[in-house]
């Protein structure tokens, strides 16, 4: 029927690209993380664990870890909760539901740079529309992106606004896959709407939730573009994500060694997170046969 080589030949092109552009680069990054280099010299002296020592002892790094963790731990559950709630209202295949679904979904496919530009302007202190609207009601202007207590929440808001529609659409599909007789049974049992939601809907869309959780956590820990365009990690580091710091150290300050060390640390963190999710959460869902 087919030779034993067939599967290898089929995966070879993908693996070749992954090897060249993902795995070998990881090794290169690890190597560079033990060296001192600013791109300008031919020599890249070996400095041992010095870069790691500097990164791990810097308050900036721990600040960025904290900020990223807050971002991920707030925005991911927020998105999923909103999405499952909204999805359960939009699950019907009728015109109003489809219209709203379309509107909610749209931002998730549009350009992050453009969205970030637009929201930077909306939230601008002096000529932003939001503060102008507040002024109409006689309210003082708010320093959305300049107040370190607020900026992260604006970022979370923008990210949620942009990504929510994707989660909703995935959830709707999950909901539509639930056999309707299960609902009928629950309704016959005299289930209240919320009860049905909690006892039938939520457990049955668990695979969807797991899928979204994995995807959005990974994405949350790598968030960069929105922050880069809107705040560049400021004000005073309040929105400085790990990747933003990585980019700054690597590509603004050109400390290739420390930048690579941060990349390696982020890599380890994400792998640990994935293992944790597979161990702890993976047991509670049955994603596939």
């Amino acid at each position: 029927m087919h030779s034993r080589m067939t599967p290898y030949l089929l995966i070879a092109p993908l693996l070749a690209f992954i090897a060249v552009f993902t795995y070998i680069p990881i090794l290169t990054s690890v190597d560079l993380s033990f060296r001192e280099w600013d791109f300008l010299t031919a020599a890249k002296p070996w400095v041992g664990t010095e870069n790691y020592r500097l990164v791990l002892s810097s308050t900036q790094f721990w600040n960025s870890v904290k900020v990223t963790a807050i971002f991920a731990l707030v925005s991911v559950p927020l998105r999923l909760l909103l999405a499952i709630g909204i999805a359960s209202y939009l699950v019907r295949e009728a015109l109003p539901q489809r219209l709203l679904r379309g509107a909610l979904f749209l931002p998730s496919v549009t350009s992050t740079v453009a969205i970030a530009v637009v929201f930077s302007w909306l939230f601008a202190t002096d000529y932003g529309v939001i503060n102008a609207a507040l002024a109409v009601f006689g309210l003082p202007k708010i320093y959305w992106l300049q107040d370190p207590q607020l900026a992260l929440w604006v970022i979370i808001f923008v990210n949620t606004w942009k990504q929510l529609g994707y989660d909703i659409v995935i959830y709707i599909a999950g909901l539509q896959a639930i056999p309707t007789d299960l609902y009928d049974a629950a309704n016959v049992d005299g289930g209240k709407r919320f009860h049905v939601f909690r006892r039938v809907t939520v457990p049955l869309v668990m695979p969807t939730t797991y899928f979204l959780l994995v995807i959005s956590m990974i994405e949350a820990f790598q968030v960069f573009t929105v922050v880069d365009v809107m705040t560049r990690g400021g004000p005073a580091g309040a929105t400085d994500m790990v990747v933003n710091m990585l980019y700054r150290v690597g590509f603004t300050l050109f400390d290739i060694g420390q930048g690579s060390a941060i990349a390696v640390l982020l890599f380890i963190l994400l792998i640990a997170l994935a293992v944790f999710k597979a161990r702890v959460l993976g047991r509670r869902v049955h994603y596939e046969a």
């Binding site: 552009f21 993902t22 680069p25 990881i26 990054s29 790598q222 980019y247 990349a263 890599f267 792998i271």
Partner: peptide
């Protein structure tokens, strides 16, 4: 590769 932050591969 899903878990790998794209930025680790940027410089290499």
């Amino acid at each position: 590769t899903l878990m790998i932050p794209g930025h680790i591969t940027l410089i290499p």
